Amino acid sequence: MTTQVQQVLVTVVIPTKNGGPLLGRVLSSVFSQQTPWAFEVLVVDSGSTDETLSVVRKYPQIRVIQIKPTDFGHGKTRNLAVAAAKGEYIAMITQDALPSSPSWLVELIKPAMEDDRVAGVFGRHIAYPESSVFTKYELEQHFAGFSRYPVIELNDRQRYASDEGYRQLLYFFSDNNALLRRSVWERIPYPEVDFAEDQAWARRIVEAGYRKAYANDAAVYHSHEYGLWERLQRSFDESYALSRLFDYKQGRGLKHAIRSWMGLTRRDLVIAKRAGLLFSCPALLLKVPINNAMRITGSYLGIHGSSLPEFLRLRLSRDRRLMRIDNWSKWT
């Protein structure tokens, strides 16, 4: 860490729970950042039972806050961390988000330092090398779209009211790899919701007149290879939360779900063909339509989650506490 000045400019916040061996690599990469200013690292641990705390304590300069598992909430815990941070800016990553280069932190803060109206910055996600070709493709395509909008703000109220796609573009924010301006957070903290707290915060800041930025060169390795049931659960949680928080209405019907499944499956078969997997990995290809069926089924059930009985929502969810929340209005 380069520290030409003593005052901390950035606090890197990492929420942890059972981070496993990957956490050591994440911390090593964070402390290898080459910056012309001082930064600190703050870990908030919510009851790890593995080697997480021993890994963290290898770095005596890390400040650690320990909370009970029952006290954790995605928005609540991040607010706790920001309140304890010393930096003017807060970089948020997760325990499985590995900075890809020593310039990650400098690139992440750059848009905010260049424009005082930028309240938050999010960076690119790269699939881990061992990830499937499908995961790599999805991440590449998803973040490629944001390169056209390096800085964005709510500048068309009429379109905002009528265009759901425009709202989705404005709301997207991922605090797996993000930076917040502390002075804005003091006015607009994270909503204390248990899912999609980052996008809920982005909605607040753009509606308040601030800008949101995307830093393509501030990349982290961050990807998941879900099993079939995990894929359904993840899709359910995401769709249920986003539907409740933002009242997204597109794609609610069964016909749309079937068309989406067919489109995803065709896309994945094309990707497999380009990668030379059509004949070399038949088992993988057999999994493709099933995986997409689980994804679409989870999303469909999540969109209609409010009408499901609680016991079924709990069964379908990976983030089970979320399913007991009947009123999200407290975040507005």
Rank of each mutant, 00 (worst) to 15 (best):
M1E: 10
T2G: 15
T3W: 04
V12K: 05
V12H: 08
V13A: 13
I14E: 06
T16M: 06
G19L: 08
G20L: 07
V26K: 04
L27W: 02
S29C: 05
S32Q: 13
Q33F: 09
Q33G: 11
F39R: 00
D45W: 06
S48R: 11
R57I: 00
V64C: 10
I67P: 04
K68R: 11
D71A: 15
G73K: 12
G73Y: 09
R78L: 14
L80V: 10
Q95R: 01
P99L: 02
E107L: 00
A112P: 08
M113W: 00
M113A: 02
V118I: 12
V118C: 02
G120A: 15
H125T: 02
Y128M: 11
P129T: 05
P129C: 05
S132E: 05
S132W: 01
E140A: 12
E140L: 11
Q141S: 12
A144W: 09
A144N: 15
R148Y: 08
P150I: 05
P150G: 06
V151N: 00
Q158A: 14
A161Y: 04
S162P: 00
L169W: 10
F172N: 08
F173H: 14
E186G: 00
Y190H: 14
E192P: 06
V193P: 08
D194C: 02
E197Q: 13
D198R: 11
D198K: 11
Q199M: 15
A200Y: 09
W201L: 15
A208T: 02
G209H: 06
S223F: 07
E225A: 08
W229H: 03
W229Q: 07
E230L: 06
L232A: 09
Q233D: 05
S235G: 14
F236I: 01
Y240R: 12
A241K: 04
L242G: 07
L245E: 07
F246I: 08
D247W: 01
Y248R: 11
K249F: 01
Q250H: 10
G251Q: 10
D268T: 04
I271D: 01
I271F: 00
A275S: 13
G276A: 07
G276T: 02
L277G: 03
L284D: 07
L285C: 07
N292M: 01
G298M: 02
G298Q: 06
S299R: 15
S299T: 14
Y300A: 05
G305Y: 03
S306I: 09
S307L: 01
P309Y: 02
P309M: 05
P309F: 04
E310C: 04
L314N: 13
R315E: 12
R318M: 11
R321I: 09
W328Y: 15
W328F: 15
K330H: 15
